[in-house]
Write a protein that binds this DNA or RNA. Structure first.
Length: 558
RNA sequence: GGCCCUAUCGUCUAGCGGUCUAGGACGUGGCCCUUUCAAGGCCAAAACACGGGUUCGAGUCCCGUUAGGGUCACCA
């Protein structure tokens, strides 16, 4: 009877799961190797959570000698967007998460790699139907012809009677339909969905240990969930079990929104007589929305989309290290102990991952990013900064490119030595941090904001201070310059140093720092900048003098 | 509403019955250093949701309350 139904539904299928198990044999990998995957659907948007789970999944695979796969779950044709797959691949590559297997490249020539192909679900229909036929033949799945309206009506009834919604037990109209009834519908041209035959009622529990959440105790699935839609495309639940099995994935790392459907997945493994893989359900990254916490939303939160980080110009290491920090707080300790090791050398531990949603913290990301950029050479800052600026700030790119040697000198200011300056947050921050070195940007800033001179320094002092700097020969040493400036400060009635000033604040107009601030503002238009002597050297005598004169003129006339 | 998960400084967390007068990081404040801004050093404020148990002893185990979160589609 059930075999007849199977043949009726899938007359064209003559393969069995066994055939596919042979076609996709177990992998020969070292003991304890994890085979993991990222399996997004191509909806035109890569969520930061996807990068987070991929990072963990890839790291875990690599540190055990396993494989990280990218599989495309395009089972919802309605939501699919053109170019999404390329977008996913590109983003993965951008964050250094290139898969070992599956869809690995945008280039169509070398797009797909691996012996477990195809890696796109819409190309695997025959496989799913073999597995479907297997279930039908054993009475573990059945066709159902309910229309959308009928299902809607069912929902209403259940709601009114305060019953659990769904297709189950006596509500499952097609559960035990006669073969003739199925045939009749088929002859009418109706296309059925395939539903799993779940036990109902059942008090049974499913117990398993999640890699992150620990011991779990869930009710066994009693819903006759749709396995294959009427358009012959499987639902996620069915496809994921079949694919993970055939691709020999042994560690499923996914968002914890899947936890409630895990019992259905376990049920499928059981129906196929398979040992389920290990699961690890990751809590989603959240943010505060008013008083409540919620998952980062693609509609409301720009930072939910990974392209945001790219557009802002965060180096990929910065995002990766921030996420690694979120995954394992011990990463910080490791980083301190191994300041120069690549983050990929860190051994991620699943059982150290948090079980509840962490809040996304941009301030912390910025801190991580500043550290990372501070560790780069001027050349690297130039290259990566230029790569970003060419796309996102062409005007800045043109300015930086105009005199590469000069730009490199700019990026090298306070970059050498034990404590490199940490002032660039990301590539889009270059303009704010270093813009004043470039005449166009400097002129703009002065035009817009003027000179934010310290108020305690009178105008007549400003002229004298600036003249002294113009007169100073830049070939002389930093010590000479500081000594000269100190003498000047003193002669104008300012304390030689902060200490002297603090001892006797009333007897000075201010201290050396205030005098230097005048120079800083004249030279840069800003109150916070790197070392002044280095700035003078970088700008060069001519350009520096020009700026100092312009400022002096401004305050002389005032 | 049913089911499930979670609950330590503002944030990320360490903690797996005594070593917790609860540790670290980011952030915040102060001091030192300093030509400025960073960095760095030192210091400070800052948390075990609540109520019951169990125990000689509970942040750690159990129960409840409360509060968050997730999920209940022919979407993933």
């Amino acid at each position: 009877m059930t075999q007849a139904l199977a043949d009726l539904l899938y007359p064209h299928i003559d393969t069995t799961p066994e055939d596919w198990y042979r076609r996709y044999p177990p992998r020969s990998l070292p003991e304890g190797a994890w085979v993991t995957r990222f399996a997004p659907s191509p909806t035109g948007f890569v969520h930061i959570g996807g990068i987070f789970t991929s990072l963990v999944a890839r790291q875990l695979a690599h540190q055990t000698g396993g494989v990280f796969i990218l599989r495309i779950e395009d089972t919802d044709k309605k939501r699919e967007k053109d170019g999404s797959v390329e977008e996913i691949v590109r983003n993965l590559n951008n964050f250094g998460l290139t898969p070992d297997e599956g869809i690995v490249q945008v280039d169509p020539e070398e797009r797909e790699v691996g012996d477990y192909a195809p890696y796109t679900q819409s190309e695997r229909i025959e496989i799913y139907e073999s597995f479907a036929k297997f279930l039908v033949a054993r009475g573990l799945a059945y066709p159902a012809f309910d229309t959308e309206e009928e299902l809607e009506r069912l929902r209403k009834i259940q709601e009114a009677q305060r019953l659990k919604p769904g297709y189950y037990g006596s509500f499952a109209k097609w559960r035990d339909a006669a073969l003739d009834a199925v045939k009749a519908e088929l002859d009418k041209g109706s296309r059925p969905v395939l539903r799993i035959r779940a036990p109902f009622p059942t008090e049974e529990r499913l117990r398993f240990t999640d890699g992150i959440k620990g011991d779990l105790d869930l009710p066994v699935n009693d819903q006759d969930t749709v396995l294959i839609k009427s358009n012959r495309i499987p639902t996620y639940h069915f496809a994921v079990v079949v694919d993970d099995t055939l691709m020999r994935v042994n560690l499923v790392i996914r968002g914890d929104e899947w936890l409630p459907s895990a019992p259905l997945h376990f049920q499928l493994y059981q129906y196929f007589g398979l040992t389920p893989p290990r699961f690890a359900h990751v809590a989603p990254i959240a943010k505060m929305d008013g008083d409540s916490k919620r998952k980062l939303s693609k509609r409301k939160d720009p930072e939910a989309n990974v392209t945001y980080f790219h557009e802002q110009g965060y180096p990929k290491e910065a995002v990766a290290e921030y996420l690694l920090n979120l995954a394992n707080s011990a990463f910080y300790e490791w980083r301190k102990a191994n300041p120069t090791a690549p983050h990929t050398a860190y051994q991620v531990r699943l059982d150290n991952m948090g079980v509840s949603s962490p809040l996304f913290d941009l301030v912390k990301l910025n801190d991580v990013s500043k550290d990372i950029i501070a560790s780069y050479s001027a050349e690297r800052v130039y290259e990566e900064g230029m790569a970003w600026a060419r796309v996102h700030n062409p005007r800045l790119a043109a300015i930086l490119e105009r005199d590469k040697a000069y730009t490199l000198r700019v990026f090298n200011v306070e970059r050498t030595g034990d404590a490199p300056r940490k002032d660039i947050v990301n590539w889009s921050d270059i303009e704010r941090a270093c813009g004043f070195f470039f005449d166009d940007l400097f002129a703009e800033s002065i035009a817009a904001n003027g000179y934010p001179m310290p108020e305690k320094v009178p105008t007549e002092d400003i002229g004298r201070i600036l003249e002294a700097v113009i007169a100073f020969d830049l070939a002389r040493s930093k010590e000479d310059w500081l000594a000269t400036m100190r003498d000047l400060a003193e002669s104008l009635g300012y304390a030689r140093d902060v200490k002297t000033y603090k001892k006797n604040p009333e007897s000075f107009k201010g201290h050396f720092g205030d005098v230097m601030m005048v120079v800083r503002v004249a030279l840069t238009g800003k109150t916070n900048t790197p070392d002044l002597y280095e700035i003078l050297q970088t700008l060069g005598a001519e350009r520096a003098a020009e700026r100092l004169r312009a400022a002096a003129a401004q305050f002389a006339s005032a």
